[in-house]
Simulated assay, not measured.
Amino acid sequence: MYKGYEKESVITFEETAEIVTKIGILPLATLIPEHPSLNGLTKAENWHTGSELDPWSWRVRFPGEGLAGYGKFVKKKAILVSSEWFPAFVAAVGSTKSIEERYNDGLASREAVTLLQIVREHQGIDTRVLRAEADMKAKEKKTAFDNAVTELQASLDIVISGVKERQNAEGEKNGWSSTSFETVNHWMEDNGLSSFEGDREEAIAWLHSKMNGIWSPTAIAWTNKAFSWK
């Protein structure tokens, strides 16, 4: 673990929020070498308890309270990106081309195009409704759906905006909760974040200026390679 962040040293959401604000990017699980992760910082016995100290529930408090963008932004792994870093992160990682342009260039799947069009029209849509709207409820279409949703997060088109409880006809909780999505632009506007003023290289330079002195050289090098940054 990188200096200053000891294993199992975090108990509360507020403590985690301070760390996310300071280091900018926090993966949920171990991912970046010599860099903290949410599961590494917290106690295993607090996970999936449903209490206020359950780190699993915090993952959606962050985007819900506008403290961090959340999604599978790198190597199909979920990370939190602080609201201060997020505009630069979008500019440094996201595509400058629209999803339609990328599809025409063979750089995006047809499923991703379909799903993004639906999310644009139904901000905060949950997974079950999204699959139904896209006509992808069939079991054999689940993999294509999951891949397209991950693709849209990696390209910074959408973020995970929350979790919706599954309810029965009486309004009682019934079964597993469902992830909900909204477009990156909508989430940023909702939380008062402006687009980064600068190009991709300037955004990368801004992020590097924040990482230097806080992140380990190993963590920075890994991130540069993962995102193809110079």
Score class of each variant (00 low, 15 high):
2 Y>L: 13
3 K>H: 10
4 G>V: 08
5 Y>G: 07
8 E>Q: 15
10 V>E: 12
11 I>D: 13
12 T>Y: 07
13 F>T: 05
15 E>I: 13
17 A>K: 12
17 A>G: 05
22 K>H: 12
24 G>P: 01
27 P>W: 00
27 P>V: 00
27 P>N: 01
29 A>C: 06
29 A>L: 05
29 A>S: 13
29 A>R: 03
32 I>P: 08
32 I>N: 02
33 P>N: 03
33 P>A: 01
34 E>T: 06
38 L>I: 09
39 N>K: 09
40 G>D: 12
42 T>M: 14
44 A>K: 07
44 A>E: 10
45 E>F: 07
45 E>M: 10
50 G>C: 13
51 S>P: 07
52 E>G: 14
54 D>S: 12
54 D>E: 08
57 S>V: 05
58 W>D: 00
59 R>E: 00
60 V>P: 01
61 R>V: 02
62 F>K: 00
64 G>R: 01
65 E>S: 06
65 E>V: 07
69 G>L: 01
70 Y>H: 04
75 K>P: 01
76 K>Y: 09
77 K>F: 05
78 A>N: 09
83 S>Y: 13
84 E>F: 04
88 A>Q: 11
89 F>I: 00
91 A>K: 13
92 A>E: 05
94 G>Q: 03
96 T>Q: 05
97 K>W: 08
98 S>L: 11
101 E>W: 07
102 R>S: 02
103 Y>R: 13
104 N>Y: 14
104 N>E: 15
105 D>T: 08
106 G>A: 07
110 R>W: 12
112 A>L: 11
113 V>M: 12
114 T>P: 03
115 L>E: 06
117 Q>H: 11
120 R>N: 15
122 H>V: 10
123 Q>R: 11
124 G>F: 11
125 I>M: 04
127 T>A: 10
127 T>F: 12
129 V>C: 03
132 A>Q: 08
133 E>S: 15
133 E>V: 15
135 D>L: 14
140 E>Y: 11
141 K>G: 03
142 K>P: 00
142 K>T: 09
144 A>D: 07
151 E>H: 12
153 Q>A: 06
154 A>S: 10
154 A>R: 01
156 L>I: 05
158 I>L: 09
163 V>K: 14
163 V>M: 14
166 R>W: 05
166 R>G: 08
168 N>M: 08
168 N>H: 03
169 A>M: 02
170 E>I: 01
171 G>Y: 04
171 G>L: 09
173 K>P: 15
175 G>L: 06
178 S>I: 15
179 T>M: 04
181 F>M: 00
181 F>T: 01
181 F>G: 01
186 H>Y: 14
188 M>A: 15
189 E>P: 06
189 E>G: 12
192 G>S: 10
192 G>C: 09
196 F>I: 12
196 F>E: 06
198 G>D: 03
199 D>F: 02
200 R>G: 10
201 E>A: 15
202 E>L: 04
203 A>V: 04
207 L>C: 10
208 H>T: 08
208 H>W: 09
210 K>C: 07
211 M>C: 01
213 G>P: 09
213 G>I: 04
214 I>N: 10
214 I>T: 15
214 I>Q: 11
214 I>K: 13
215 W>E: 05
215 W>H: 03
217 P>I: 08
219 A>C: 07
219 A>G: 10
220 I>P: 02
221 A>D: 13
222 W>M: 04
222 W>Q: 02
222 W>V: 05
223 T>Q: 11
224 N>W: 04
226 A>F: 05
228 S>P: 00
229 W>H: 06
